[in-house]
């Protein structure tokens, strides 16, 4: 185990943790979402840097636990998980692949940049029929990061991952 540890690189850890999924939206990983900020090695220890999405997101503790479990399952013990608040998490860090995965899952991905769209989008594109004739039902959805919309064309309700 100790010998194996020596051979493990930062890149291996990064790859390993890229498989950890978000507990509330399990189609995307913490790397996709930009929650996994960095992995580096300091004095023989792997430092894993995570950033919470919303301050009160209940998934935050769960994500930290999943990361610890993932590392331990791979027999890695010499690590330290650090929560870093600044720079504050933004949906701008989401990968394009992440946005595509969300859309396939039925969640409209954030549109535009957080610099200009901090407040909710008026008419995000419907993830089902791609219509832009959509209307806000409520500014807060089932999780802190989403709002609820309805499509006037296909009549389906859908969640929109807010630009943040």
């Amino acid at each position: 185990m100790i010998i194996a540890d020596k051979e493990i690189t930062v890149e291996d850890i990064r790859k390993m943790l890229s498989e950890v999924v978000d507990p509330e939206i399990p189609v995307v990983t913490i790397a996709d979402l930009g929650i996994l900020r960095d992995v580096r090695k300091e004095e023989g220890k792997f430092i894993v840097i995570l950033t919470p999405t919303y301050s009160g997101c209940p998934a935050t503790d769960m994500i930290t636990l999943s990361v610890i479990k993932k590392l331990r399952d791979n027999k890695i013990e010499n690590f330290h998980v650090v929560t870093q608040l600044s720079p504050a998490w933004t949906t701008d860090w989401m990968t394009d692949e992440c946005k595509a995965k969300l859309k396939r899952f039925g969640i409209a991905p954030p549109e535009g940049s957080s610099a200009t769209e901090v407040l909710e989008k008026k008419h995000p594109r419907c993830p089902h029929c791609h219509s832009m004739d959509t209307i806000l039902v409520t500014a807060f959805g089932t999780t802190a990061c989403k709002a609820l919309f309805k499509c006037n064309d296909c009549r389906e309700p859908f969640e929109y991952f807010k630009c943040h």
Binding site: P52, Y54, S55, L85, S86, P87, A88, W89, S114, V118, L119, E120, A139, K162, H164
Partner: peptide, 12 residues
């Protein structure tokens, strides 16, 4: 650091 995060939330 906290303010930077919270500011976005309270704006909403």
């Amino acid at each position: 650091d906290v303010a930077e995060k919270a500011l976005k939330e309270v704006t909403y």
